[in-house]
Design a protein around this nucleic acid. Structure first.
Lengths: 136, 136
DNA sequence: TATGGACCCTGTAGCCACTACAGGGTCAAG
DNA sequence: CTTGACCCTGTAGTGGCTACAGGGTCCATA
């Protein structure tokens, strides 16, 4: 193993990623295949570490793997990527906003069903009534 | 086909569910197998309609299929289901709240990366900088 | 009677982003 | 020389559908 090279477990710890996930990213072509040791262990260098950190950070921000792929290839091209990257990020922000709005509406409806009487009294199943469509 | 019985397509239209989804619910045991016509078509009655409406409504409210299964069996047992149902609903509400909080935090972070300068100027890629871990 | 089209059937594979095995091999410490 | 931590490949499973492929049924029209 070359100086500075690390094994998959170390890379996993360094980036907060599971070992299986790293292998998965390699399989789908998101993370480049590293060289191997004599014993056929993956040997990662600093470039892999940087790349995987970028991926992790993007994933944590909720970007899809396809979006991450696009972000990676755009950020590699150091000519005029900003507009395209901006677009992806803004689009994602829009989607997050939409999701929040959805969930807020959902919450409202759930609350109106459950009722805010948090006291332990038995609530004669308004919930079932709210779910059931037909009179019975 | 008995009087009042409907075919899968009609049930789908009546409940706003896709035909494939109805068959899927049947396969996983969520919706009872209906009787069949001579031509081997599924023939649904009013009970199926009620049941599927209940399922749809619960799904729309974000309950998982396992939760729906529990809600169904609890609401069938007309003795003392209320507490258990209440618990499921409240737990779901809690999960929705947590999800909303997650997304709000995410939105904050995304916004700070994208920047609120909505004017079309090129923003010298703060986004990439924010994603990249290492100085280069 | 033939034919077209709308509908239905079964069964399987694909989607996303992992996660969890099973069944082995490698390597360093004791 | 054995133990145990780590690594390897490959496959199957998760949730909740969705999309075929390759047929069958039913009804109306020509």
């Amino acid at each position: 193993m070359k100086a500075g090279a690390i094994k998959i477990g170390e890379l996993a710890r360094a980036t907060g990623t599971k070992v299986e996930t790293i292998r998965f990213y390699e399989k789908i072509g998101l993370l480049a295949e590293p060289s191997r040791t004599e014993g056929n262990y993956r040997a990662y260098g600093p470039a892999h570490l940087g790349r995987l950190s970028f991926i992790r950070r993007s994933r944590d921000l909720g970007f899809s793997l396809d979006q991450v792929r696009a972000l990676l290839s755009l950020s590699d091209d150091r000519n005029q990527p900003c507009d395209a990257i901006d677009l992806i990020a803004r689009e994602h922000l829009r989607a997050v906003d939409a999701k929040i709005a959805d969930l807020m509406a959902l919450k409202q409806e759930l609350q109106s069903i459950v009722g805010q009487s948090h006291s332990g009294s038995v609530s004669t199943c308004r919930i079932v009534e709210a779910l059931e469509p037909l009179p019975h």
